[in-house]
Write a protein that binds this DNA or RNA. Structure first.
Lengths: 250, 250
DNA sequence: CGGTGAGTTGAGACGCATCAACCCCAGTGG
DNA sequence: CCACTGGGGTTGATGCGTCTCAACTCACCG
């Protein structure tokens, strides 16, 4: 089942087994790509969307000096460019970070789904809005946090998302990123990322070695990052990570 | 027609007159609110969405020190929290900047639309993805631009969006924002916003006085901001503002 | 006429960028 | 087998951009 991880455990949007079947049948092709490959360019019309099965992918915007800003990072189970279905043309590039396996879904089959299965269509819509919620958390990260806070916030997010995909045990996970990549995510230079990593290491919060993240103290890391996982719309509460979901509202 | 401005002139998503009629009939209520009012709180379930008719609204995330990061700013014609329809619960707050007039659309009526009018549903979906594209441009702004570039980029964006809504002549428009608000948008302190404004004024690019923006030199402002309006998905080309839409692709 | 919120300006501190070395290690080819 | 190469990571010195704190103006309003 290629669609196994898609929307798994998401609050109010988990797929029924029939819906999963329908989506599975909408896949036209499964492909693999090498690391650091650009799969879709800005301004180029797309007629299919990409479900990520394995590996890590990115979406990024280039500035005129050849520098990049990552606007999203995707883990297995994410529908990377489902938003290309209504938009048709993208405002950013889509690429691989690691080697990946992806499933392609032609937009014509998504037409059929929106016509015949409005409830499944609503869940696909939900999926793209979850990406938008993550965008907003990234805006908060860049606008309100200092360098250490940004990296800490990013690690907390990836820990939760990878754990939901069954790819983190809540403390350790592989990312396939370099320190330079972290810089393009957090709006910092590679050199400063390095100093941030040292500080996080010396403070006993987490270590990053050869693209492997190990979180030593999840609570302090989350506090340093002002991280609250509610925006990820995960159904079950997460051990060790405080969430306003578990506290009374207002 | 309350829905008159919604998706007007958007590439590949303009409404037909029948669709506009359907949406118009989905409105249950038209209300007004005063400036600086919070209309929806984080974590609170919503059963209607809000179409902005007149005024400026914001979406923002609070940090634990009482500081805010704005994640979106809405102009007349925007469906401010349409994403609350699939999501049900928001990850941020929704509030007014100026006095506003809004139209409320119950989610039950959106259910009917997605069941009966898949093409209109796709356009509603498009609308929420346009907001996500704007989120991404804001990420680029915060991650890659310096203080002057951020403010310049924001002004360029608002100029284009307000012009598309018929509320800017391409040079002058009202925003209803203070310098402190600009700080919460651009991730800067009010004091520094003030210095940035002085620099933009002395460089002859634009002036900001009593929440009124006047752009003296649109080309230089756009260049300073690395601004390309393609991400706003406006159908017609914009006089005076360079766009890669008008250049050959790659 | 005192109060309040927005805007303005200056001085000093601090966080991050920049520039420049240097190390380590995995490939690669002679 | 070893020299070479290049990418990723590490560290130091220095400079600049933005923050912080503080004072002051001005317009508006009770």
């Amino acid at each position: 089942m290629f669609t196994e991880r898609f929307l798994r455990d998401k609050r109010g949007a988990a797929l029924t087994s029939e819906e999963r079947e329908i989506l599975e049948n909408a896949i036209s092709e499964v492909k693999t790509f090498g690391p650091r490959t650009t799969l879709a360019f800005t301004g180029e019309p797309l007629n299919h969307s990409t479900l990520l099965i394995e590996g890590i992918m990115s979406r990024h915007i280039d500035d005129r000096n050849g520098l990049r800003q990552l606007v999203a990072l995707h883990v297995p189970g994410d529908f990377v460019d489902l938003h290309a279905y209504p938009l048709k043309i993208l405002d950013h590039e889509v690429g691989t970070m690691t080697a990946v396996t992806v499933a392609l879904v032609p937009h014509t089959r998504l037409d059929a789904i929106t016509r015949e299965y409005p409830e499944l269509a609503r869940k696909l819509w939900f999926s793209t809005l979850l990406d938008a919620a993550i965008h907003r958390a990234w805006l908060f990260r860049l606008g309100r946090l200092d360098a250490v806070g940004r990296v800490a916030h990013f690690f907390c997010e990836m820990n939760v998302r990878l754990a939901a995909a069954g790819l983190s045990d809540g403390r350790r996970f592989a990312l396939g990123l370099t320190q330079a990549d972290l810089g393009e995510i957090c709006g910092l230079t590679p050199v400063h990322i390095n100093r941030v990593m040292r500080q996080l290491r010396e403070d006993g919060m987490c270590v990053f070695r050869s693209s492997l993240v190990e979180i030593m103290d999840p609570e302090r890391l989350a506090a340093r990052a002002q991280f609250d996982p509610d925006y990820l719309y995960i159904a079950k509460p997460l051990p060790g990570i405080p969430s306003s979901q578990t506290r009374p509202i207002r």
